[in-house]
Simulated scan of single mutants.
Amino acid sequence: MDVVNQLVAGGQFRVVKEPLGFIKILEWLFSIFAFATCGSYSGEFTLSIDCVNKTESKRNIKVDFEYPFKLHQEYFEAPTCRGAGATTKVFLVGDYSSCAEFFVTIAVFAFLYSLGALVTYIFLQNKYRENNKGPMIDCIVTAVFAFLWLVSSSAWAKGLSDIKLATDAELIKEQIPACQNTENRCQEVRDPVMSGLNTSVAFGFLNCIIWLGNLWFVFKETGWTAPFMKYPPPAQEKQPAPDTYAPQGQGYAQQDSYGQQGGYQPDYYGQQPEYNQQGYSQGGYSQQGVPTSFSNQM
């Protein structure tokens, strides 16, 4: 208990709260569900054969089949309805072990790998990130498993469809000699329960989606996205506004370039020359030829 508390206090279990570790836990759990629902399946269906001679009838014929679904090895005893209580062996049709075993094998290996990766995330994080080899290997293996989940789930879905067809009562009655006689009555009493196998197919495709989604989070850990990342340009510093005006009463603090070069520079705050009778006069402006005072008129 103290060891667990130390690990929690050290933050080593923090990775399970992150998408990388949390999705790995989902991969581990759903892999268990996938191979458990398929690998542990065992089903049966029941047939009834009523012969003309009622003493030869058999109304409770149980037919069992299970993983890995080698149906061609499964058989049941059916009455011939020809007297003397004779029976005949009737075999089911088809061998679907390849797709079922392939699906379960992928699920088991996915379970083992996700468990090992989760332990590495928690206890060997430094080794995992050393030289960036851990994320690269993890990314490649995750991509391979995502592809294998898709292939195995598709193959198993097709195999399950064939199993349902092979255990259909109409197809099986065609293989029973006694059912070829219209005077005898053959019927299926109970259908096999396929809900567990349907669930295994659903878990297979769900695992494919989970592993494919986790591929993105593992890919980001590799650093391969760095060359494709676009960083925003650095913010430019604002230039200070020019001090156009000096304190009040001192006129312009700075002159423009035109005034510095010796061009015309008006003196807005000083007195400007004014025209007199011959031109401008100092102190004010008067029109040419007009006396500036009353004494000039005398």
Rank of each mutant, 00 (worst) to 15 (best):
G11K: 05
C179D: 04
I49Q: 02
R185M: 08
G259N: 11
G134E: 10
Q260A: 12
Q254N: 12
C139A: 15
D162R: 02
R59D: 13
N131H: 14
G204E: 02
W211N: 00
F147W: 13
Y268G: 00
I23S: 15
V218E: 14
F219P: 00
Q250G: 02
M194Y: 13
D138S: 14
G249T: 05
S114N: 00
T37Q: 02
F145H: 08
Q282V: 02
T167G: 04
R185P: 01
D243C: 08
P177T: 09
S40C: 10
V15M: 03
C81D: 09
A86V: 10
I137P: 01
V63E: 07
D191H: 10
T225I: 15
Q297H: 09
Y268K: 03
N198F: 07
S153H: 01
C99P: 09
C99Q: 08
Y275K: 02
A241G: 10
I172H: 05
L118G: 08
E56H: 07
G11M: 09
P266L: 12
T88F: 03
Q255W: 13
Y268F: 12
A155H: 03
T120I: 08
Y268T: 08
C81R: 04
A235M: 04
P234C: 01
M136I: 15
V141D: 06
P232A: 11
G289C: 05
L165I: 03
L29Y: 12
V52E: 11
G223W: 03
K133C: 11
T142M: 04
E18N: 11
E274W: 11
Q6S: 14
I106G: 08
F123A: 00
A241L: 10
A235Q: 12
K238I: 13
F22K: 11
T80H: 03
V151H: 07
Y280W: 10
A246D: 06
R129H: 15
V151A: 06
G259E: 15
S152C: 00
K164C: 00
Y275N: 09
M229V: 11
K158Y: 06
S195D: 14
A241D: 12
D191V: 11
Y280R: 10
P192D: 11
E174M: 10
E56F: 01
D64F: 11
E56K: 06
N184V: 04
G289F: 06
A86Q: 14
T87M: 12
Y285V: 14
T167S: 08
E66W: 04
V93L: 10
F45A: 10
V108L: 13
V4W: 14
F69R: 02
T222Y: 00
G249R: 00
G270N: 12
L197Q: 07
Q265V: 15
I61T: 03
Q272A: 04
G159Q: 03
Q12F: 09
L150Q: 01
A166G: 06
T105L: 14
G39M: 04
A107Q: 05
V93N: 15
I137Y: 14
V151C: 00
Q265N: 11
E44T: 00
N53G: 05
V201H: 01
Q255T: 03
N276H: 05
P135V: 01
A166N: 12
N214V: 03
F33V: 06
L212T: 15
S200C: 08
F219G: 14
